[in-house]
């Protein structure tokens, strides 16, 4: 079967993403929120270290402290994933895209590659800037990249944001509706999942949600309440992402546009 040129599709999808300002802003927002909030909480921790650490069972996790802002920064990353796929549905442009590239699987793969690479690039910058900024503000309580597990946790933060973005993109392709996808994903990650993972009993289920699982990747010292470690968290979050993208591809391929 004749196939459209994949590099051409990547180039085209890259143009689509970079030429809509609102989409690019969500990435910038994710960076700013994660770094600024992390810096603020690192500073607060340094100034109130004794209070914050009273009764703590695990060693102080300077890395996780600097990434405290990721809880909000990830929402912007989720929105980016939704917009990057969903704005084609809201504008009716999807028909133009499919008329240009009728090989739907190839088109969606191209989209996800561009979204994923861009999200990873921004997330890597976010992760390292957030880490170094946070450590600088933690003063004597800081850690270094060379300490055990720290580099893995910083890279884990970048992978976490990227997977969450791709998960959202996949869900949007499944729902083929931008507003619906935002309405489902943002409340889920912003409210539902954090609340559920704090409720007794329910939290054993919530501990297998993609965000909770993925966040295990950026802890240096495993929390006593966590049912599994960072590697299991990575695979679990990755499985969610793969499932969302596969589901999205199945809908994308079969549905009338």
């Amino acid at each position: 079967m004749a196939m459209a040129s994949f590099p051409a599709i990547l180039r085209s999808e890259w143009t689509k993403i970079r030429t809509v300002r609102s989409t690019v802003w969500t990435l910038l927002l994710s960076f700013l929120v994660t770094a600024a909030l992390g810096a603020l909480l690192s500073l607060l921790t340094k100034n109130n270290f004794a209070d914050f650490r009273r009764g703590a069972l695990t060693p102080f996790d300077a890395t996780a402290t600097s990434f405290a802002g990721i809880m909000l920064g990830e929402i912007a990353m989720v929105v980016f994933g939704v917009l990057a796929i969903g704005n084609e549905y809201s504008s009716g442009m999807i028909r133009v895209s499919l008329a240009a590239v009728p090989q739907r699987g190839t088109l969606l793969t191209g989209k996800l590659v561009v979204i994923g690479v861009l999200a990873l690039a921004v997330s890597l910058v976010t992760a390292f800037v957030t880490f170094f900024l946070g450590q600088a503000l933690l003063g004597v309580h800081r850690t270094t990249l060379g300490a055990p597990n720290v580099l893995r946790a910083v890279l884990g933060a970048a992978v976490y944001l990227t997977l969450l973005c791709l998960f959202s993109a996949g869900v949007t392709a499944m729902l083929h509706n931008q507003t619906l996808a935002l309405g489902v994903l943002v409340p889920f990650f912003f409210l539902l999942s954090p609340i559920l993972s704090a409720v007794p009993r329910v939290k054993t289920v919530a501990h297998y949600f993609p965000d909770y699982a993925g966040r295990q990747m950026l802890t240096v010292f495993q929390e006593p309440s966590a049912p599994y470690g960072w590697l299991a968290g990575f695979f679990l979050c990755g499985a969610w992402t793969l499932a969302a993208m596969t589901g999205g591809a199945a809908v994308f391929k079969s549905r009338d546009a």
């Binding site: 459209a4 051409a8 599709i9 180039r11 085209s12 999808e13 143009t15 689509k16 030429t19 809509v20 300002r21 609102s22 704005n87 084609e88 504008s91 009716g92 442009m93 028909r95 133009v96 895209s97 008329a99 240009a100 590239v101």
Partner: peptide, 23 residues
Amino acid sequence: LEASASHPGRTARNHLLWLAQSN
């Protein structure tokens, strides 16, 4: 197919640019 099948936030030139690149 339909008149307004372009993203409202994208310029006319960029709309044609991604289309040209894809093919």
